[in-house]
Amino acid sequence: MPLIDPVTMSSSIAKGAVAQAQAASKGKDASLSTTLQPVQVRQTAVAQTVRHVFPALVAAVFFFQFGHLVADPVKAMQRSLPVVAALQIGYALLCLPVAGSPAPKLARKVRPGEKKKPSESSVGQNGYVTALLSLLLAVLIAPFFHVTMILFGAPFLTHGAQTFLCALHLAILAVFPLFYAHGVDSAAWAAVAGFQAPLDETFGGLVGALVGAWLGAVPIPLDWDREWQKWPVTILCGIYGGYLIGRGLGGSLFFGKKF
């Protein structure tokens, strides 16, 4: 008498196949994650300064705009958008390695007395083009964020300008540096979208901005009758606060860590 039940046997084979596939994919995952390195901020003095100054500038812009934002969100967001975009472009050009550049050796300390290679500190033609393209791509991502916000319960037919500007801010703040650093590398983006990328300033900023935007919805329903509860002020606050915190933590405390 054959011992094997045909039905269970075949089902076990199906399972086995899945398990094999899973095992294989784990291997693939591992290989994928080893290829994607956290984005290193350049080691130049300028970059290291800018890295800390620019977030402060972004925060300052947001802080001083806040009154206007509460009074007239659309106008305030329109006005601050170019400033924030310029700051982000400046940050990317000065601090981030441009997409496609050879990955810097992991945290290689510059030995005392050693001359820095000129190519590391200068921004080539490539950088400006990439920055512009990245900005364009980030703007193209904005409609996706807009739809996402609607799906989370943002007004569908009204407040279109507010929602879209909020989405634009989110894209330029959090997605633009990622485009600048990773280009359109599909493996990198798959890792980012699947939240498997290692944390760094760019990815940390994205995660922070998304979490902040999510938490930004919390105060909206409260019946405090405050002006700042209007759409999308709290979301924007969450985005900026989350972005700055995420960027700070991603670049320092949790650098290179993964979820």
Partner: peptide
């Protein structure tokens, strides 16, 4: 699943 059936298998 599908599989050849041994004729005398009880579970089948």
């Amino acid at each position: 699943p599908s599989s050849p059936s041994p004729p005398a298998d009880a579970d089948n």
